[in-house]
Each structure stands twice: as structure tokens, then as C-alpha cells.
Design a protein around this nucleic acid. Structure first.
Length: 609
RNA sequence: UGCCCGAUAGUGUAAUGGUAGCACAAGUGACUCUGACUCACUUUGUCUAGGUUCGAAUCCUAGUCGGGCAGCCA
């Protein structure tokens, strides 16, 4: 039942995905351009991972996995102002969860205690290569098969490379402040101007840069810049900054540094140092690719060099996917935290009960292209239902109970009924549920004035109680105010399993629980967080928050549900898939989250069919 | 009004000069002790205009529309 991690055979059934990136990789493999395929997943630890990252994770780990390669989890932590250890921990947990049982054997390996310092400017350090058999060498850290990588572990190496760039006349120390730097840069349709400090001597640059590192200058006073082309039509080639001064400690590197490298300088070299063959990132970095190549080439590094390829981000409907916007929802308490089950964060999705395998299936089915698309969230929902339909046990639960009395069953009686745990199993197992005089049924399953084609219970009508028998509604009892008190019905006991009329057909079958044996539970019914398909495109997305994204009910459950664990996947028959909330449940207190409803072609907006 | 990228059913994605296919969504029906699942069937597409070619979604030209680029963020 625990089953975010299907048997390998299950995933082997799905054909290997194909896309333009995998074609490139396949060509490189065929041409033997790299010793092995190495990719990386490089989040900055400044927030929680979400569905968009899942796409990147599945692509990067997927490519590695398909070629017997590795994928490194690397923290792209070059900006100490934004990064926190809390995020590092959540990212490790989420990555581990998403790839478990699928690509965890591809996780890049770094020998424990390896010293990350540079060995030689022209030679690669040798610690990046993954072992042939990770299981034989791995030292679990936080449950991971390997230690994650940190860009900040390369600060020494990066500094040495910067010195080399200066020696080669390819970088200089610039004294322009941020504002003036921007002015000199020009605009997309207007050439920039050379910095007045562009032609300093190598000796002066070397001296100044070393003094920057030594802490002689305040934040922003100077920067190290590449010397490329201030007239380039590509803004990112107009002498972009390599290093800035920041007198703040780093969560991982400590207090050693007061100069920190920028993304464009650190990323390509980090890839290089780790032996990355294919560096996959999103489309907004297309313009940066020239800079990525420039750094590597102007350092004269030996080939093969890593190459950057870009793909379109995932943008699903009815949700928000940027860290910045999710952070806002968390801070403004629109949701309860980063792991709120309504959020598209991996921790939220996990808590909601969505299996990692369903997320993987979803991002794979969406494909990898260079087209900025809007993906219908229904594709995710389909993947979740398909996954859960196969693995969830069926149970009876009533969300909004009304009382029903079976007048021909006596008060102390309990008729055992056999119920199927999962009809999708090859050899389904069964359990017993008790039919008693008083039961609860769903209030939606009774209508005093039924709409057309209503298959459920109505006055004088018949319906089958699932796994039990057919009942007939004889009387609707109301109190003085007209409120429904109970339904009085007779049970046709000859329609029970093993009885002569078991095959008698009625149009409707409804779920129920014994009133005397039911256990109570808090059930959280989640719906989409936004009312419009593309809240991210709005100036103020808060105007489009769904006021009904969470509804809490006290439900009546069949007793077997009291034994549920957070790893279980359960279908409440006719209602949807549910999971125990791992945070708020406690012994004696059951809290269930609705993962997703069952498809309902009857109650669809637009009415009956 | 500089440079770069993109455009195939409602949505997403294949077709790599040779029959426009798949998934989701939507609809119809069958089945059903879950109005679920499953099964069958159906609707809907190459941005526009030229050109190359025996043949163009694919190649070329122009246009249209959309996205990206001017952080000492990543």
C-alpha cells in the first residue's frame, strides 16, 4: 500500500521519452564526445522546490539514467544574501522523494570529505567522477545515496580561475558603482561604452582583485568584470560582472569570503569542475549561453567542455509556480506554509498525497520543447488518478452524513458484508464491513425532489448499499423546523451476497457506514487555489484566489480506516483519493487530506448528461 | 524601435522533404454493486502571404502574433 515507489516493472512499461535534448545527448554518446553523461540539478537554496523543478529533475536525472550516467544535486549558492540551510534541507528531502526507486542510483557521488579546492588551473580535480557502482561506495548523508554538491565549495577554484582570466587580459577590476555600470552598459538598441577602468594593467588588476578578496573595499566599491564587448547586441556580453563585494557570511562557506562570484561565472565553471557533459536550464538563459562558452574558452580549459541547452519551463493552469509568488502566498498567510497541500511545492504535493510516480509521469507526458506553453492541470490530475486507481485500497467513508434507519434490522444486529479492497488487483483481497440498523449515507445521495436522471435515493425509491443490499426509502422524518432527521428504509435482505436475489439490479449504488461502528475524522477537502487558468499573468493574483480552496468536514469512516498510516493511499468509494495528513494526525486524531476527487461525469458543471 | 527565440485540434506534444499521429480535455454509446475504472466511436489542427520542389508542418523570403534580453539575482 505504501507506494510512491512502484515496482521497476511498472515504470519500465512506459516508453523512454524522446525530445530534442535527448536527441543531442544520443548523438554525443554515439560520437563518444564524453567519458560519461553527467547532468546536474542546480537549485539555489532560497525557497522550496515545486512542480517546475520536478520537470528539471526528471529531465536531468532521466537523461543520466538513460545513459548510465549521473546527475549531481548541486546547490547554486553564490549569493549569500538569499540562501538558507532550511531550504537546503527541504531540497534534499524533495529531490530524494521524487527520484526514489526511479533514479536514486544516478545521484552524482562525491567521496565524503573530498577537499574541493582547486588542484591546478588547467587540470580537473578528480573527485567529480561517479563510481561505477554507487551502492558500493555511497555514504548516506541525510538519507541520500550521495553528498550533494555546493557551488560554494568551488570558491577557491573560482578565485584561482579569476586570477588566470586577469593574467590573460580577459578580466579587469572596475571601480564604477552599480548605477554607473548600468549607464555604461547602454541598452538593447544602443551600444554601451567602455568603462574608464577597462585598460588597467594586469599587475594592477591582480593587485586590486587580491585586495578585494582581502576585504580592503566596501560593498559595491569595485567589481571584477570580464573584458568582452561593450557594443555587443547581446547585453550579457557587455563586460558582465564576475565578482562583487559582499561583506556577509555564507551559510555553507562560512566567513571566509567577502567577494562572491556571480551566476554566469560560477555556473559554467562548476559544471566544468564536476565533469558535467550537458548543462540543461530554462529558456531565460539562452542569452547567457554565449557567456557560458566565453568563460570556459577564454580560460583555455581542456575539452570536452560542458554545453548548455535550454528548454521551456513548466507552467500549469490554475496555480502559481515561481518561488517569489509562492513565497508571497506563504508570507501573507494565504496558505498555511510551504507545505500547504494546495501549493504546487513538492512538499505540498507530497502532503496532499500525490505520489512521486504520478508527478514523474506528468512531467514526462508534458514533454520537453522550446515553446513557452501553458499546461492544462487536468493532465496532472489524470496522472494522479491513473496512478492512484491502481494502488489505492477502497474504503467506505461518508463526508456529510445523514442518518438512515433500516427498520427491519434489529438494534443489536450486525450483518457482515464482504467488501473488495481493490478491484484493480489481479487477485483482490476482501474485508468485512458491518451492516447495522442505523447507518450514515452521504447527504448528496438523497433527494426529496430528485433532478432528472437521479440514480440515488428518493422517497419511495430503491438503491443498493454498496457491498450490502438493496434498500427502499419508506419515510422521510423531519423535525418541527422542517430539517431532515432521518430516513426510514427497509432492507431487502434477499439481495445480499449469497442470497437468491443478489443479482437484482437497481440503477444506483451508494456508499454508507455503520452508525454504531463508524469512527470520526477531520477531512480536508482541497480544491484549486485560483479561479482563473493563468493567475501568474495577472498584476494582482490575490484577487483570483478561490475562497473554497479548503473545506473542512467531520466525516464518518468505516472502522478499518483508523489503522491508516501516512504512506497509505486510500480511495473513499465514489468520492476520491485520500491520504492521512502526516503533520496534523496523531494517535486518536485522524486527519485526512483529499488528494483528488474521482472523475464525475454526472455532477460536472453543466449538469447531468 | 536593436538582438535572440518560438508558432501543429480547446491544451500539450509527435511527424527530421513522402498517408498530419498521440495524450489530456470535450461529446456519444456499451459495461458497471464506485455516475469511477474499462471498452468502442466522434468533434476539432499545420499563424499569413509568396517562393523552391514531382511533393512542404518541415527548406527559403517577407509579414503577423507571442516570449526573452538593459541585477553587483539565479
Amino acid at each position: 500500500m505504501s507506494a510512491d515507489h512502484p515496482a521497476p516493472s511498472a515504470s519500465a512499461a512506459t516508453p523512454a521519452p524522446s525530445d530534442f535534448i535527448r536527441e543531442i545527448v544520443a548523438q554525443d554518446v554515439a560520437a563518444k564526445r564524453h567519458e560519461q553523461i553527467v547532468t546536474r540539478f542546480p537549485p539555489e537554496p532560497n525557497g522550496y522546490l515545486h512542480l517546475g523543478h520536478a520537470k528539471s529533475i526528471c529531465l536531468n536525472f532521466g537523461v543520466a539514467r538513460e545513459h548510465g550516467g549521473v546527475c549531481n544535486l548541486r546547490f547554486d549558492d553564490t549569493n549569500p544574501a538569499k540562501e538558507e540551510i532550511e531550504y537546503v534541507e527541504s531540497i534534499i528531502t524533495d529531490v530524494q522523494w521524487l527520484i526514489a526507486g526511479w533514479a536514486d542510483h544516478c545521484l552524482g557521488f562525491k567521496p565524503k570529505g573530498a577537499h574541493p579546492a582547486l588542484q591546478a588551473v588547467d587540470g580537473k580535480p578528480d573527485y567529480y567522477l561517479a563510481p561505477v557502482d554507487p551502492s558500493g561506495l555511497s555514504v548516506p548523508v541525510s538519507g541520500l545515496a550521495a553528498e550533494p554538491f555546493y557551488a560554494s565549495d568551488y570558491f577557491d577554484a573560482l578565485y584561482e580561475y579569476a586570477l588566470e582570466l586577469i593574467r590573460r587580459g580577459k578580466a579587469y577590476v572596475c571601480d564604477l558603482n552599480a548605477e554607473d555600470t548600468e549607464k555604461y552598459r547602454g541598452a538593447p538598441d544602443r551600444s554601451g561604452q567602455d568603462s574608464p577602468f577597462r585598460n588597467r594593467s594586469v599587475a594592477e588588476n591582480l593587485d586590486l582583485f587580491q585586495r578585494m578578496k582581502a576585504g580592503e573595499f566596501p560593498d559595491g566599491a569595485r567589481s571584477l568584470r570580464s573584458k568582452i564587448d561593450m557594443a555587443s547586441p547581446n547585453m550579457w556580453l557587455r563586460d558582465p560582472l564576475l565578482y562583487r563585494i559582499r561583506h556577509i557570511p555564507h551559510y555553507h562557506a562560512g566567513a571566509k569570503w567577502c567577494i562572491y562570484p556571480l551566476y554566469d561565472y560560477a555556473h559554467c565553471l562548476s559544471d566544468y569542475l564536476e565533469g558535467v557533459s550537458h548543462s540543461l536550464c530554462s529558456l531565460e538563459f539562452v542569452a547567457h549561453r554565449a557567456l557560458y562558452d566565453w568563460v570556459l574558452e577564454n580560460l583555455g580549459l581542456p575539452r570536452p567542455l560542458p554545453h548548455q541547452y535550454e528548454f521551456a519551463k513548466l507552467v500549469p493552469t490554475y496555480t502559481l509556480l515561481s518561488k517569489r509568488n509562492i513565497l508571497r502566498l506563504v508570507q501573507e498567510k494565504v496558505v498555511a506554509g510551504w507545505d500547504d497541500p494546495r501549493l504546487p511545492t513538492l512538499s505540498g504535493l507530497r502532503r496532499r498525497g500525490i505520489p512521486a510516480s504520478a508527478i514523474r509521469q506528468f512531467v514526462i507526458s508534458v514533454g520537453v520543447t522550446t515553446f513557452n506553453s501553458l499546461t492544462d492541470i487536468a493532465v496532472l490530475e489524470h496522472a494522479i488518478r491513473e496512478d492512484l486507481n491502481a494502488k489505492a485500497v477502497r474504503r467506505l467513508a461518508v463526508l456529510r452524513p445523514i442518518k438512515l434507519v433500516l427498520t427491519n434490522i434489529s438494534a443489536g444486529e450486525a450483518l457482515a458484508c464482504e467488501a473488495v479492497n481493490n478491484p484493480q488487483d489481479e487477485t483482490p483481497t476482501r474485508r468485512s464491513v458491518a451492516l447495522t440498523r442505523e447507518v450514515f449515507i452521504e447527504s448528496e445521495d438523497f433527494a426529496e425532489v430528485p433532478p432528472p436522471k437521479y440514480f440515488r435515493l428518493k422517497p419511495g425509491g430503491e438503491v443498493r448499499l454498496k457491498y450490502a443490499c438493496i434498500i427502499k426509502c419508506d419515510e422521510v422524518v423531519k423535525d418541527a423546523s422542517g430539517q431532515l432527521v432521518e430516513l426510514r428504509c427497509t432492507a431487502d435482505l434477499t439481495t445480499r451476497a449469497g442470497e437468491p436475489n443478489v443479482d437484482r439490479k437497481v440503477k444506483g449504488t451508494i456508499h454508507w457506514v455503520s452508525a454504531t461502528q463508524a469512527v470520526d475524522a477531520e477531512v480536508r477537502l482541497y480544491d484549486r487555489l485560483f479561479t482563473i487558468p493563468a493567475p501568474g499573468a495577472e498584476e494582482d493574483f490575490k484577487k483570483f484566489i478561490n475562497p473554497h480552496s479548503l473545506e473542512v468536514v467531520t466525516a464518518k469512516l468505516e472502522p478499518a480506516l483508523a489503522q491508516t498510516t501516512p504512506d497509505d493511499r486510500v480511495q473513499f468509494e465514489r468520492l476520491g483519493y485520500f491520504t492521512l495528513d502526516r503533520k496534523d494526525s496523531a494517535p486518536g486524531r485522524l486527519v485526512f487530506n483529499r488528494t483528488i476527487t474521482l472523475k464525475d461525469t454526472w455532477a460536472k458543471p453543466g449538469g447531468s448528461k
